[in-house]
């Protein structure tokens, strides 16, 4: 019997080793280990053995069975893995083909600049004030220390609708309206983004419609140095940490003293290049200390309160920041232009 078992084991293991498919292996399992298999038959024949030999023989049968089962299992793993690999090989795709496109739009570059500036100033305690684009002569000019006969009105030829109403030429009327709402009580801390309109022929550097962001702070101890500090924060945020600012005296009817603010040229780092016309500086802002007439007209006591105001041309910022060379691009809305601003930049 023992020999018969050895024989069966060898025979079975041989077949397992030769098996190349899972089905074949299963057949071997059924054939050798199944109820009708030869090993079971050997077990049945154990009744003829002596009581001493029977357990020995039983143990031997179990060893053989286990040996065959183990080998089948090992082989099964091998075959299964091969089957999986074969399937995977068939499923192989070209991963270099493009992915399924996801529709994705984005901000207009001007909105991008505006939101960046808004967020910066909100972080410094400002709110965002807005107002009408069609304004009264009063809010657009007179409340800003530009009476009807003021020569500075020449500086901004305007689109009038009636004698008394016009397309606003700056977002300053929003400042005037906001101050009025405060009824002489500070502090006021606002920025005013929005569209403005001037009588210009559209060309590479002029647009009859453009955007501005103005800022206004009124409190009891506001000084020119505060304006300087605030705009330095702005310049570094929008144009990069290395930027420096420079104030130059200037004139605006609604501020006194007035300044123009230059930012050190981003392109050449201040050495002088074609963008900054060799000066190392680029003019980007105007501002100053709020004119006492403007404060008084809006109901603020100019002895108690002082303030600063500044104005930024949004297109100018975007043109400098992104190297755009023609202001008309912002209003043509060529999608080849719009789609260039759809990602993060640090």
């Amino acid at each position: 019997m023992q020999e018969r078992l050895q024989e069966l084991q060898e025979e079975a293991l041989q077949k397992v080793a030769e098996a190349s498919e899972l089905k074949e292996l299963n057949d071997i399992r059924v054939a050798y280990l199944g109820k009708k298999g030869p090993i079971t038959e050997v077990l049945r024949g154990m009744g003829k053995l002596s009581a001493e030999e029977r357990p020995k023989m039983g143990a031997l049968v179990n060893v053989v069975r286990e040996e065959i089962a183990t080998k089948i299992e090992e082989k099964q793993k091998v075959l299964e893995e091969a089957a999986v690999n074969a399937k995977l090989a068939v499923e192989k795709i070209d991963v270099t083909l493009p992915g399924r496109p996801v529709n994705k739009g984005n901000h207009h570059p001007l909105t991008r600049v505006i939101e960046e500036v808004e967020d910066l100033f909100i972080g410094m305690g400002y709110t965002v004030a807005e107002g009408p684009e069609v304004e009264t002569d009063f809010y657009n000019f007179e409340a800003l220390n530009l009476p009807k006969s003021h020569p500075a009105r020449d500086m901004q030829d305007s689109f009038y609708i009636t004698e008394e109403t016009l397309m606003r030429t700056h977002t300053s009327p929003v400042q005037a309206r906001t101050m009025e709402k405060h009824k002489g009580q500070g502090p006021v801390k606002i920025i005013c983004p929005g569209k403005v309109y001037r009588r210009d022929n559209d060309d590479a550097t002029h647009s009859h419609q453009f955007m501005q962001i103005e800022g206004l702070v009124i409190d009891e101890n506001i000084s020119m140095s505060d304006l300087k500090g605030t705009l330095e924060v702005f310049a570094k945020q929008v144009f990069g940490k290395e930027r420096e600012i420079r104030l130059r005296p200037s004139f605006f009817p609604f501020t006194e003293p007035s300044v123009e603010i230059d930012i050190s040229c981003k392109i050449c780092g201040g050495k002088g290049c074609s963008v900054c016309k060799g000066t190392g500086w680029i003019e980007v802002l105007g501002g100053g200390i709020v004119h006492p007439n403007v404060l008084e007209m809006a109901g603020f006591d100019s002895k108690k309160y002082s303030g600063f105001a500044f104005g930024i041309g949004v297109e100018r910022i975007a043109m400098l920041k992104y190297g755009v060379d023609d202001i008309r691009h912002f209003y043509t809305n060529d999608v080849r232009f719009l789609t260039q601003f759809n990602r993060h930049e640090s």
Binding site: G125, K189, V217, D219, G229, T230
Partner: peptide, 14 residues
Amino acid sequence: IPTTLPTGTVTPGH
């Protein structure tokens, strides 16, 4: 002219 930031009343920005 020195460089400072406005001090005084704190206002919530939003």
